[in-house]
């Protein structure tokens, strides 16, 4: 609270005391996340408004592969767990554990992006290009921007890992990792929403000739169950 104290502050990283006790950067991150809710909210709304309105295929039911996306969802969810362990390690000052957990998180993040690249490519081969129909435009835009968020998060975590590996005095601080973690978890919860709406619920939207709803990827699951 006492700003006067900072008048002679040495040029090392000292957390500035704030009115509310919340660190500036942490507050900034939460305001950003609140704002990003509106960003994804609008993209999801666009998808939902255009749901079922495409006039040519492929329709979601023709190509969406729910089982494989369930696996990639699981990977992203677990990366949230490793991220929170990284934060805990950073807070206790355990650089070695921090780097280990960060690497695990990065690998899982890359795994998720790998699944997405595979999925996009499979869709393209099936004939779903960006310009094909309303479903493709809104689907690729929404999941693409989510993927861009994940990619940015991976990049951020890599930077933190490099800094931690070199370990210049006290960096990254617990707060640095914490803030990156907030971003990472947010990307995860956005995916929770996307997965439910676009895959579990919207993944079965079929075109007019629903009789032959494609079963790509479902074969092995149905085989397993029956």
């Amino acid at each position: 609270m006492a700003h006067a104290e900072t008048a002679h502050a040495p040029p090392v990283e000292v957390e500035e005391a704030t009115t509310t006790g919340i660190n500036h950067r942490k507050l900034l991150m939460w305001v950003f996340l609140g704002s990003d809710c509106l960003f994804f909210g609008s993209l999801i709304a666009t998808y939902m408004v255009y749901r079922g309105q495409s006039i040519v295929g492929p329709y979601p039911a023709d190509i969406v592969d729910v089982p494989i996306t369930t696996i990639s969802t699981f990977v992203l969810l677990m990366s949230s767990f490793s991220m929170v362990m990284a934060v805990a390690a950073a807070r206790s000052g355990n650089q070695k554990r921090l780097i280990q957990w960060l690497l695990v998180t990065i690998v899982m993040g890359c795994g998720f992006i790998g699944f997405q690249v595979y999925e996009f490519n499979a869709f393209r081969v099936e004939g779903l290009r960006y310009e094909t129909n309303l479903f493709s435009s809104s689907f690729y835009t929404l999941t693409g921007f989510h993927g861009a968020h994940v990619t940015l998060g991976i990049f951020w975590l890599i930077c933190i890992t490099i800094i931690a590996a070199r370990n210049p005095a006290g960096r990254p601080s617990g707060l640095d990792v914490d803030i990156a973690g907030l971003y990472w978890h947010f990307v995860d919860i956005v995916w929770i929403v996307i997965f439910t709406l676009l895959y579990l619920i919207g993944g079965f939207d079929a075109g007019p000739d629903a009789g032959h709803a494609a079963v790509q990827g479902w074969n092995w699951v149905t085989g397993l169950v029956s």
Partner: peptide
């Protein structure tokens, strides 16, 4: 501002996608 601008961002992304990348929004 921080709550309203993401919406125009999305609208402009969709417009740009339509014009530049052939999307159908």
């Amino acid at each position: 501002l921080v709550l309203a601008f993401p919406i125009i961002t999305v609208a402009l992304i969709e417009l740009t996608a339509d014009r530049q990348f052939g999307a159908n929004f």
